[in-house]
Amino acid sequence: MKKLILTTAALALMGTFAAAQDVVRMGTEGAYPPYNFINDAGAVDGFEIELGNELCARAGLTCEWVVNDWDSIIPNLVSGNYDTIIAGMSITDERDEVIDFTQNYLQPQPSAYVGLTDDAALIEGTVAAQVSTIHAGAVAASGATLLEFSTPDETIAAVRGGEADAVFADKDYLVPLVEASGGELTFIGEDVMLGGGVGMGVRESDTALKDTMNAAITSMKEDGSLNALIVKWFGEEAPLF
């Protein structure tokens, strides 16, 4: 009997040890550089991948990356196919009703309009944005005609093809595209500050994971490693903590 109790205690201890080495499945989109994308080797890469791996290392968790369509990224989180969303998702009240967010790991980022010519009238015409983003919401509220696409790349293609007059998205996503377009694409008007910063999405019931991640983000904010990572991927002008 004594042996039995000892074994049970040992098993229980091993149980808690295993819990500390838990596997956390991280859901991301993989189509939104520099936040997250698939690199030439076919692996996920980007600011959020580096950040996520560091957060997991600090929290003592093993992390697995899962690529999921943006459209169904929240339904798949709540039904338990993965445990976090780390996909450049801005913290908004609407999303907060369905899922929970950690504290923000990015300040509110500048968003911008891009079109074929720098003509302010364009942003009142037909504007392309990715579906279910704060940008789509902002365009709809601005009174312009909203044209939604399921991937960010399609919004750019719509402007190039003349289907839309302009595209509205995170500026950090647009800058490399404008640079590489050789003058074809250009920014229109001023930057717009949008959203409450970017955070990691977790299930509302998953408070333990939320607390763990919050602690890890705080420690990265405190020792300046988060700022270093932001400068590495978003450049010197990015808003820091």
Partner: peptide
Amino acid sequence: ARELGSTQTPRFTAYPHGDWR
């Protein structure tokens, strides 16, 4: 096909190209 064909900018790939979808 959608992922590979989408516009790739030189900052994130060694093989940049336009919209090849």
